[in-house]
């Protein structure tokens, strides 16, 4: 019984997060201006981090947690660098 509940909720969560990633990607590709694309990339990173955590629950392994932490770190650094680039036109001043 509990295995069935968990199986369906995990599937639902994965589908919802995949749709969320697709929507973020849509904004990243079509977003009218550069800041929309950067925000879309940030949202894409966030949703993939959540998806990795859900994978971790599904497989019962903790290695996905470390992958999620690294994805979060990379997302933060790349968004900050891109925002800095948008503001000044260059990253290294």
């Amino acid at each position: 019984m509990s295995a069935t509940i968990l199986y369906w909720s995990l599937t639902c969560a994965q589908v919802m997060l995949s749709i969320a990633m697709a929507l973020a990607m849509l904004r990243m590709v079509f977003g009218p201006r550069a800041q929309d694309r950067v925000l879309g990339l940030d949202a894409l990173y966030l949703n993939s981090m959540l998806l990795l955590l859900v994978f971790g629950i599904g497989s019962g392994r903790t290695i996905y947690f470390e992958a999620a932490l690294i994805i979060g770190l990379l997302g933060f650094v790349s968004t900050v660098a891109l925002a800095k680039f948008l503001m000044r036109g260059e990253v290294i001043e």
């Binding site: 509940i5 639902c12 990633m21 949202a43």
Partner: peptide, 20 residues
Amino acid sequence: VSAFLLLGSGLALIGMIGFT
């Protein structure tokens, strides 16, 4: 676990719907 999972991913999805 299911309730929290659906809450979290549902909120992320609604956020992205708003984002578009």
